[in-house]
Every structure is written in C-alpha cells, then in structure tokens.
Design a protein around this nucleic acid. Structure first.
Length: 492
RNA sequence: GGCCCCAUCGUCCAAUGGUAAGGACACCGGCCUUUCACGCCGGCAAUACGGGUUCGAUCCCCGUUGGGGUCACCA
C-alpha cells in the first residue's frame, strides 16, 4: 500500500505549533515509507476562515522546513486542495447519502436546538445531542419544505444502538456506543459541508493511507468510519497523536503559552531546533540522542513507537536545544547570516529606525532605544505596570481585555492598534493614557521608549501579545474564575 | 455530568516479569574563568493507590484516584 499522509489545517487563526507537530510526524511517516505528504486546507467554515491565515500557515510551515508534495500552492493529481474549491464534490456525496437514506434534511432552527440542548443539560440527561426530530420526516414533506425555500441542514443517520469499534494504531481497539452519538450535521445551511463529511470524502479521494492528527479527534472517529461504510469505502489507518500541553497539563493554548509558530520565529528560535524539539514530544531516537534532524528521524522513525503520555511543551528545554544548535552548528559567519535573516536586515532596521529617529542625538543612541525590537522578552517590573489610583487587579483586567482585542486585529498596523486601545480605554471609562502606561511597561520594559503604537506595529502581533501576557504574570496573573467572568463581560 | 483516552523524577524521554529504575531540561553545589555564558564534575528528585496473576511485578489484568479530551450549522 502506498503511504500517503496529510496535514489538514483550518485557516482560522495563527499558525499553531501543534500544527507543526502533526505536520512533522505526518511528513516523516510518509518519507519513511517513500510516500507522499499532502497539504489540504480545510476552510469549510466560511465565517472564520481567512486567506490571510492560510497564507500565514503555509508561510510558517515553509519556514519551519516542512515541505509537501501536493497542496493548494503546488497542485497535484488529487486537487483541488482547498475544500472551498471542492463544494460540488461534497454536494454529490451528500445527495448520494440522502438517496440511500443514510442522511436526511433537518429544518430545526438554531433556537430550537439551543433550547433542546439546554433542557437536556438541565435534566442531566446522559446524552446532550440532537433529539432527531426531523429524522423521520417523509421525503415528500421534506422535499416540499426545501422547495418552498426553507432553510435546512443535512444530518447523517447514526445507528440508534450497538457499538462502533475501530482501531487506533497507538491505542489498539477503541469502542463507543452509537447511542452516545447524535445525528451529526454533514451539510450546513450555507451549503458547505461540515468537517466530518469533507474530511472523509477528501481523505478517500486523495487516497490518504494514514490519518495522523491530534487526540482531540478520537471521539469523532465513529462518525467517520460510519461515513466510510455508507460510501462503501475502506477507512485509512488512524493514528491519534497525544496533545501538546501547557505546564498545567491542559491542551496547549495561547492563553498560557505562546502557540504561534510566528512567535518562535520572531523570538529567535531556529526552525531546525523547533522541529527537533517537537520530534522529542512522544518520540525518541533509538540511541536516545536528543539532538537530531528530520533526516535522522526519517531513518529510524516508526509510528508505533510514539508514546502516549501527553507531553508538556517546555519552553526552557526548547531554549536549551535551540542554544545547542546555535553554538554547535554555526560558525560566527553563519550566525551573522542568520541574524541578518532574522532581524538585522535593511527592511527591519529601517522600520525600527523610523520609529526612533526623532529621539537620536547620536547614532549610538540607536542601540539604546532599539534594544526592545531585537529581543524576545523585556524586563518588566510591577512598578512599570502601575497605574495611578488603580488596583493591580484592575490593571490585570485591562491588560487581559487588551490582549483579547488585539488578537482580533487582522491588519496589524499602528492605526488599527490605536483604535483598539482607544476602544478598550472607553470600555473601562479611562483615559487612553491609563492604558498606554502599563503597555509601555509591558511592551518596552521601560518608561523611556519610542511611540507605543508604532513600536507595536514594528514588533508584530505575536511578540506584543506574548509580552503583555508575560507582564500579567509579573502582576500575579488572573485566576481562572475571574478570567471566565471577565470573558463573559468583555469578550465579543 | 455522559462517553472516550491517558498515567515512571517538577518537565521531556528511557528500562526489564528478577534493575542500585537510566539520560536530558530545570534546580542546587563545585571546577574552569576578569564577569556572565559555554564546558566539565557532583547533588536533589519518580514507578499514583488498592487488589489480583506470578516464585517474583514499575512492566500483565481489574478497580480506585488523578489528569486530559469530547459532547456546535468550529475545525
């Protein structure tokens, strides 16, 4: 059997290190077997998918050093590789399922579904899914309602009893009662397929042999194997990778850790070190060596050797490893070259210079004023973050809400940053100055600094958000409970 | 809460049905050194608990506990 693996990111946000993790293992497994690695963009969520995110993901994957044999940018024999370009294919398959009575149109409104769900939770029902109201609608009635223009989705018919049994290459046999699964939507009201339908159709059509992805998908596998059965197809081999964790063991998230690949890039990590580090999450070289390349990995990797304990993403070990690459694999000349690639290039230097130019009395002042643009973190103290007449807790809230708002800025520039900060200040009924004060501290690590908004623009979103989060830690951080409350109040 | 997955130092990764349970990061000491870092040497530190199976279990089985994931017209 030809080994074909794929990475199927959804372009809905920053490129995530977890994506790189899955990409690495998928890529390596394909190459171990002389097979192909495919990149497919899963943009079936029209509201959240953006082209900018897709570009960013491809770009950071390239930076990290993962290459793909087929994908939206390079094409290939199984294209198109962007799901939004494959709508007619899905439509055909959905119609086939309806025809065979494996799926049915559902006219329930979002409001009704919310109500049903709420009631089930209140009643502490074991099953909190859809109540299958439309499952037995007559085809005639359904047809009429569709013809009359009523909005509908398509759901698949999950067996009402019995159990689903499937294999995971790392865990062996996994079983799950059908009764615990509700009639999953496979086509949304906008005519787009949901993930579940699209992933099955594409993996089959693209002849994917091994599905290597995060553990969070295990509970969806029954729906997928059922779809394979409906279509009469052979399911691929499933391999669910352990999830990367925050230090508190929860799923790696940007709340608690920088997760964007771009952050690591901007913070001065080498791609080969990042990849190497990711490779030792759940896997090790046969001889136990900790420094190894993707090539080394390909020579001795086996999917079955992955260990299942969910690894904590430990930045200090990554830092150590990165240090080894820097000092062991680079001459001074090579290092200089890398530095130039990283930040000491004319473009970045001129951006930085523009921000500080008016403050220079000698050329040598430049170094003093620009250090913050060439470092990862910045020295922050409680004092730097203090706002007059405001309690520490309040400052924390202010910073947290700022991070949330900044996360949503799509076009990262000084004007956009300014309007976001102004908005936050207004929400808190504060003068802008009350907000920019602690931000100077968080972002610049000093009261003496170039203009904030411009500096933030130059620094980039990832570094800014990470620095603000780090500053919040200096103030003691926000408790989970409080965070939830705050989220309810301010996060939109 | 239902269901699913998981369980060796604080963290990452080893090990065997019989071990002094090993390496790495972090941490702590020391050496080197004008400082720091690197490097070197040393130290601290783990088989979650309870039952079985077995002559013997960290390893196999069951339960408990703990952790995580998942229950969307998000992926």
């Amino acid at each position: 059997m030809k080994v074909r693996t794929r990475l199927a990111p959804s372009p809905t946000g920053d490129p995530h290190v977890g994506t790189a993790y899955q990409a690495l293992f998928g890529y390596v497994w394909a190459k171990v077997n002389g097979g192909e690695f495919v990149l497919r963009i899963e943009d079936t969520d029209q509201d959240r998918s953006t082209e900018a995110s897709e570009v960013a993901i491809l770009d950071s994957l390239r930076w990290v050093g993962i290459t793909w044999d087929e994908g939206p940018d390079v094409g290939g024999p199984f294209g198109p590789y962007r799901q939004s370009d494959r709508l007619s294919i899905y439509r055909k398959h959905i119609d086939l399922l309806i025809e065979k009575d494996h799926a049915y149109p559902c006219f329930c409104s979002k409001e009704r579904l919310d109500g049903v769900r709420k009631k089930l939770i209140e009643d502490k029902a074991p099953n909190r899914g859809y109540d299958r109201k439309c499952r037995n609608l007559s085809p005639v009635e359904a047809g009429e309602r569709i013809a009359s223009g009523e909005s509908y989705v398509v759901r698949m018919k999950i067996p009402l009893e019995g159990e689903c049994l499937f294999q995971d290459i790392l865990r062996g046999e996994i079983t799950k009662d059908w009764a615990s699964i509700d009639d999953q939507v496979i086509m949304k009201a906008d005519g787009f397929p949901t993930y579940h339908l699209a992933v099955v159709v594409d993996d089959h059509l693209m002849e994917i042999s091994h599905i290597i992805r995060g553990e969070e998908w295990i509970n969806s596998v029954p729906k997928h194997v059922l779809l394979y059965k409906f279509f009469g197809w052979e399911p691929p081999v499933y391999c669910h990778l352990p999830l990367l964790r925050n230090p508190d063991k929860s799923k790696l998230s940007k709340r608690k850790n920088p997760t964007s690949i771009n952050y690591y890039r901007k913070a001065g990590y080498l791609p080969e070190a990042l990849l190497n580090y990711l490779g030792m999450m759940g896997w090790h070289m046969p001889d136990g060596s900790e420094k190894f390349s993707v090539k080394d990995m390909i020579e001795s990797f086996n999917l079955k050797d992955i260990s299942l304990g969910s690894p904590v993403f430990d930045r200090s070990k990554l830092r150590w490893l990165n240090g080894r690459y820097i000092r062991e694999d680079n001459s001074v000349d090579q290092l200089s070259e890398k530095l130039q690639e990283w930040a000491l290039n004319p473009e970045y230097i001129s951006k930085v210079t523009e921000v500080v130019a008016s403050r220079l009395e000698t050329l040598a002042d430049w170094g003093y004023f620009t250090a913050m643009f060439f470092s990862d973190s910045v020295p922050v103290t409680e004092e730097l973050l203090a706002v007059k007449d405001m309690e520490c807790d309040k400052v924390l809230e202010l910073l947290q809400v700022t991070v949330w708002k900044l996360e949503k800025v799509r076009d990262w520039n000084s004007t956009a940053i300014f309007s976001v900060l102004k908005e936050v200040a207004e929400v808190f009924e504060l003068k802008l100055k009350a907000l920019t004060g602690p931000l100077y501290g968080a972002i610049c690590g000093s009261k003496i600094a170039p203009p904030l908004f411009d500096s933030m623009e130059v620094l980039g979103s990832d570094l800014c958000r990470t620095r603000i989060t780090a500053a919040m830690d200096v103030l003691g951080g926000i408790s989970g409970k409080k965070l939830k409350k705050l989220e309810k109040k301010y996060r939109t």
